[in-house]
Design a protein around this nucleic acid. Sequence first.
RNA 1: GGGAGCAUAGCUCAGUUGGUUCAGAGCGUCUGCCUUACAAGCAGAGGGUCGGGGGUUCGACUCCCUCUGCUCCCACCA
Length: 882
Amino acid sequence: MELPAKYSPAEVEDKWYAWWLKNKFFHSEPDGREPYTVVIPPPNVTGILHMGHVLNNTLNDVLVRKARMDGKNACWVPGTDHASIATESKVVAKLKAEGISKEDITREEFLRHAWEWKEKHGGIILSQLRKLGASCDWDRTKFTMDPDLSEAVINTFVYFYKKGYIYRGIRMVNWDPVGLTAVSDEEVIHRDTVSKFYHLRYFISDGNGNPTDKYIIIATTRPETIMADAAVCINPEDERYHWLKGKKILIPLINKEIPIIEDSYVEMGFGTGCLKVTPAHDVNDYEIGLRHNLPVLDIIDDHGRLNEKAQILVGEDRFEARKKIEVMLQEAGNLEKVEDYTSPVGYSERTNAVIEPRLSMQWFLKMEDLAKEALESVESGKVKLIPDKYRNTYRHWMENVRDWCISRQLWWGQRIPAYYLPDGRFVVEATAEEALKAAQALDPKITAADLKQDEDVLDTWFSSWLWPISVFDTHKAGHPEAQPNKDLAYYYPTNDLVTGPDILFFWVARMIMAGDEFMHDVPFRNVYLTGIVRDKLGRKMSKTLGNSPDPLDLIAKYGADGVRLGMMLCTSAGNDILFDESQVEQGRNFCNKVWNAFRLMKGWTVDEKASQPEAAAVAVRWFENKLDMTLEAVEDHYSKFRISDAIMTVYKLFWDDFCAWYLELVKPAYGAGIDAATYKATERFFDALLKMIHPFMPFITEELWQNLAPRKEGETIMLQRMPLAGEYDRSVITDFDMACEAVVAVRSIRQQKGLSPKEALTLLVKGAFPMDTLPVVRKLANISSVSKVDSFEGVSGVSFMVRTVEMSVPLEGLVNAEEELAKLEAALDYQEKFLASVRKKLSNERFVANAPEQVVAVERKKEADSLSKIESLKAAIAALKK
RNA sequence: GGGAGCAUAGCUCAGUUGGUUCAGAGCGUCUGCCUUACAAGCAGAGGGUCGGGGGUUCGACUCCCUCUGCUCCCACCA
């Protein structure tokens, strides 16, 4: 195989991905092995891959590939989410661009357009995931609106309805006037918003609907809703307003008479202490209205415009109306003053429209019992959140959860299976046929034509909460008593879920609820919550800022392996990651390093007659131990989901230990062959290293592994077992480290003295140096001879210490005695101070009495080492002074 | 308003029940090298009073209090 000096990922990556697919390596079927299951957080069906997906799916893929190499039956189920609001608004926009208005076409026509759109754009994001190397079982690809998954959603609705958990009613909901639908509490984002605080004069009525000259001042942020006022409310404790009792107040501009009511809800210290009560357009006011039996007058329509009930400004948008009514109030003498005011305003998560609290008929799911169980699942540790800090947030939400508004006034989604009889009664059944039967039980004369199905669809999350169940078994959701099918029985519960904390409640919590309800078990064991990918300035990546790189461009430029590694190097659970292209560059550079190490090794020719050089023997023995030690550390990182630590540990093992030390030590002289024993060992190490790197960089490792040795047809690194950590001898590693320190010291001396690496030097050793590692020093520091000495007296050289061993490089004529002396004296000074601090500790009786033995022993060792160093330094100084 | 979290090297972050010569890593920086795997590289070096203050302890980056600055989540004060 021809190997260029630079690795080019493009063809390699496409080649191996296609080959993996062809061989169905990602495909999983239940068998006797332990399963390892992951379901993808389904991206929006019309979505495009962004950096957040890269982070999430790379993490997922690392976990899946690792599990697969641990011998588990790994199954990663991919799929997409129909994302009702997001998709519907995209389709509406597309139709609008074509001159078609949603209002002018039928539901069926609209859905035809929507499906067309889905077919056209639906596969994009999944194909992008393939470029990233995601090892999903594509044969299992699901879509939340697949017919059978939709059926599961409907069955679930029917199940909860019959259980009494689903009810229909007129409630104050969060209305999105742009999306034209209700949204759940979780889909409302509150943001502090600068607005105005209008102080309005409401005049007292003379009893006949005419204003007197007395008035009170009411502060409001929404003057455009005054026409819907049903009362003015004061706190019963508020003495300032006792004179108002029994009086009537006139609404400005329309002179409508409304009563004064008292309710302790009103804060006396806030605003003017008078509250206008507008039950139709404010959640709190609605509650007050209920308590006081106030009429509800809804003056705002679906689009957020004033309707005819407002009497004035009819047809105006609510914000336009606000501006205009300010002028009208001013002219009418009702405007006392206007102040700037900052208050939290609710925005729609999807459309960013200001949410209009609005009364409407909606379907709700009771959450109390579901939340209780779901809380327990996390509190008991059956589901672990990583990082753990999210437990608090989770608990708080679960303890304060409100009923879930599950109906949406949209067409794209699962239509609510409620069927209305002409008299207004309704039945809930999974199919029209069953509904007809049920309806006929109520009224035998009913025909199919009489029944009208509810127009609304279900919240998207009402389908995605079934995901870990319904991707395997579409019957079980909605039928807790049913036997799970073979797949569900085998794969459920899934193992790990990787997702963002922003959907902890939308999705994660609700999946736990559905799992409890239908499986009597949690849907996953561990939830790894990623952070948000930001740019290097800490800003959220967004289209408008243009700070979000296209992952596919990055892959084209650096290779998928490079992109993956760049992401993994800087991710830690729960922390946002500040993404910078230089990290991907680092990933690419690592690929190149691996590539070149391979080139080096492949360039060697084995000399069967050659015996193993000492340095190589030391290196092999050391690396064997180092490898085992590192495997143990990496395994520990994986077990704690410290993915970036795991890859960094492997990265350093490869780059620093394997390349910088090991390969340099075993590298044969130019033109010479390598002995067979060393070559075999090197191959073995390379094999292990490739396997360790594979979960992070699947492509290049497959490419090199295939070329490392002859492979049988269909053999892949993907399915090799990850090497297991064996026993290792720590002293081998520390001895080698000392040799390395000596090498670094000599190299440093060369640098300081301007000596070429080619110029051989000699080395004097005084003290207990692990002599069997000396070949390392000789080879890598270019030392021609090493002598053990008892003293450096009479030697003109540069000395240094490795731990407690003193060493010197004789350098006749190059040594500045004064400099040397100063260096030694500084070292002595430091050492003496260090000794003093150690002795201070040791002479402290309370320390000796209270500290654990081990800690005291360490201090004694420090003392002894320090004494020995001081002795050496003093001797060296004395020798130098002679 | 309630809750959670963060502050350690120029940057991004580790530091796992308070105690290994513990103040670390990666990147960046500086110096010297095109050394026959790799300049996407090699070798070497510098860099932090662990946000400020106080306390507990024989001992604090680690525990407690407080101040400052930032972030996030939740929330119906018009």
